[in-house]
Design a protein around this nucleic acid. Sequence first.
DNA 1: GATAGTTTCATACAACTGTTTGAATTGCAA
DNA 2: TTGCAATTCAAACAGTTGTATGAAACTATC
Lengths: 221, 221
Amino acid sequence: MASDQTRTAILNAAERLYAERGFGDVTLRDIVAAADVNLAAVNYHFGSKDELIAELFVSSSIATNRERLNQLKLAEEAGGGRASIDSILRALVGPTLRGCLGPERERSAASRFMIRASIESVPPIRKIKNREIDHLRKFAAAMRRSLPERSEVDLYWGLHFALAMAHQTIRDSERLAKLSDGLCDLNDVGGIIDRIVAVSVKALTGDQRKIADKISAQRAR
Amino acid sequence: MASDQTRTAILNAAERLYAERGFGDVTLRDIVAAADVNLAAVNYHFGSKDELIAELFVSSSIATNRERLNQLKLAEEAGGGRASIDSILRALVGPTLRGCLGPERERSAASRFMIRASIESVPPIRKIKNREIDHLRKFAAAMRRSLPERSEVDLYWGLHFALAMAHQTIRDSERLAKLSDGLCDLNDVGGIIDRIVAVSVKALTGDQRKIADKISAQRAR
DNA sequence: GATAGTTTCATACAACTGTTTGAATTGCAA
DNA sequence: TTGCAATTCAAACAGTTGTATGAAACTATC
């Protein structure tokens, strides 16, 4: 077969450029110039621009998903089939956050690319993200086993909120840094994960009646 | 001055098209065709495509911001200068959620446009969003007055998480609906607001020592 | 070393984009 | 009506985009 040299040169250059400037501002000509290959090489090796983007995204995201499932498995084994809700949520948001946050200068091109992919939303990536639901179902199932007394709806909302906090933190870390005048340390990934997990756990395990009361009291206004 | 007929026709058509198909897929020619005006009218009335988008976004977002501040003011008056954390968060996330969620068929073009603006991220809109920080500071200040014993960092994270849950719910309501198999009722905007506010309040008012313990215990692993 | 298959290359293509131009038209004030 | 500004219009512009083509260069097999 081929030497794969050109192929990987394109992948690396594309990943870096997309990470730096976003999907909207990078053309195939930019990529091939950075990779020092011919313009036609992209279509020859990948078929189209969209397929190149898709390949970049899937290879990055299956790595994260594998890490997630791995941690989930470990947590379930440690709990004898029933992982603690804490460890489930940690397995859910930890890998993504660890992959995307951390000191700016230490971030790999791959991580900066994934941040871009989570901010901007281009068609080829959107398609792939839709397939992610099956992956999330595994976490929903684990949560169900962990908190069987909790209603399904509450569990789904808890899962959704945990992901929301993680993704928004990745997406908008700059705004939080500005808003808090640097008070919120976004380089402390471990601390951020702890915070998100703690809030999510509290949302899922708090006294249920208290919440219900609160809600109905609020609604009564 | 002018009749403004052309101007508003363009605004309406653009709002509707962007809402339906997103920013990437709508050209000026699509807009002028839908508005039944001449192509040059956009540049004549707005200067450029980006300025048209910006005008659409600001007019929608100042409406939401005004509503937010209005509710905040009411809450502070009701509390004699110190609004409850509950009502502050409600003023923060309520207007946005009410504007963007609810039964699909009842959504206005303006609300669908704002959903798009929150999913896709185009340069003219990004610029405007950066100015939103001053607006958020007012809520941070209100939260500080409401929970003076809480650390600033905790307050900023709480504010950030509340917005995260609200925005992600708007952005990804479809995924949650699919994941939960329709179990999570995304038409019940009031219920969603209650949930987000309840979780945020719990995150901000829970026993502080418990959280600190939890965090240090988690870190010890 | 000839051959067949793979890969690279320069170049052209075709379509689409936002913007500009200058003339035609309209609407209003004198 | 006349004159002047505001608005509309058809047309063209200038640039960019992803993709296709066919010849050239390379590589490995026999």
